[in-house]
């Protein structure tokens, strides 16, 4: 712990040097992911590479009917998850023309790529955000969750006792307890690979560089250039998600370029690290505890009416 900063500062808001804050002296630059969903082709190489490298077990063979996504969500046995969203792009004239051909009232919905001038197929590879202020880590009572020297967040499986606190704390629904194992698992940002100078498996497998791994500052610069470019090209919805250090989790180590609102991708629109309020909570606790003490003592010793 470094002295020069107040508890509140350390619990939320921008943080100059996360690893230093976590107690590393002269840590290496903070590393992370910029996932540019605008070039994702939904090949799922990242999902498979992650499982291969980390020996993550199979996570259920079940057709979900959510476009080409049969994974569903991140979890203890899915550390990368590619999402697919099909959106109609609607052009009335054509739409009604086809409706007529199909012998239907123009108003009736008969969607069709051309007659609505196309669908839009959004694809995005989700992963643990490696938050600047990581709720999972803050609440972990065993210290199983740690901050690494590159400011990533990692579970130590040999320490975790499966209390599940991290699960309730994560504002993104990332980390989870693995059935039958009892411990919590999530993306390690390939701590073992990066330690040996390798890229994370998912980023290495990604053919289009939708997943970009690197020093966070550099990634942020690149991401901002990319998002302005897209906006100039008419992608008005293009936005960065989890990139700003002043957001609810102090900016994430893994941030995204999205082409629609975060919730469309299943992301929380405005996540906040729960421990931002921890001091207030302890305050209320003090109040309540005092009230209890007073209540009991008052009624039993003060001798009620």
């Amino acid at each position: 712990m470094v002295e020069h900063r107040s508890l509140t500062e350390r619990l939320s808001g921008p943080l100059a040097d996360v690893a230093d804050d976590a107690g590393y002296s002269e840590p290496p630059p903070r590393m992370g992911f910029f996932t540019d969903t605008s070039v994702c082709i939904g090949c799922k190489a990242c999902e498979v590479a992650c499982k291969e490298w980390n020996d993550v077990p199979e996570d259920g063979i079940k057709l979900l009917g959510s476009s080409y996504d049969n994974t569903g969500q991140l979890g203890a046995s899915t550390w990368r998850h590619v999402k697919f969203i099909e959106q109609p792009i609607y052009v009335p004239e054509r739409h009604d023309q086809l409706a007529a051909d199909l012998g239907q009232a123009p108003t009736q919905s008969t969607p069709s790529t051309q007659d609505e001038a196309g669908v839009r197929w959004l694809m995005a590879s989700d992963v643990c955000k490696h938050c600047t202020h990581a709720a999972c880590l803050d609440v972990c009572p065993t210290g199983a969750l740690i901050r690494t020297e590159t400011a990533t967040v990692v579970v130590q499986p040999d320490v975790c006792n499966g209390c599940g606190y991290c699960v309730t704390a994560c504002p993104y629904g990332v980390i989870d307890i693995r059935e039958g194992d009892g411990r919590a698992f999530k993306c390690t940002l390939c701590y073992d690979r990066t330690g040996a100078g390798l890229m994370p498996a998912c980023a290495t497998a990604c053919p289009t560089e939708s997943i970009q791994y690197g020093p966070l500052d550099e990634l942020r610069e690149r991401a901002n250039a990319r998002v302005t470019q897209l906006q100039l090209e008419g992608e008005t919805q293009a936005q960065l998600y989890n990139e700003r250090p002043d957001d609810g989790v102090g900016g994430a180590g893994a941030f995204f370029l999205l082409l629609d609102k975060p919730e469309v991708y299943g992301f929380p629109p405005d996540p906040v690290v729960t421990t931002r309020d921890i001091r207030k909570m302890w305050g209320y606790l003090a109040g309540a505890a005092a009230a209890v003490a007073a209540g009991v003592v008052g009624t039993l010793i003060g001798g009620g009416p």
Partner: peptide
């Protein structure tokens, strides 16, 4: 996203 939860329900 397909009406799926954003969060993990407490275990």
């Amino acid at each position: 996203y397909y009406g799926r939860p954003v969060l993990k329900a407490p275990t």
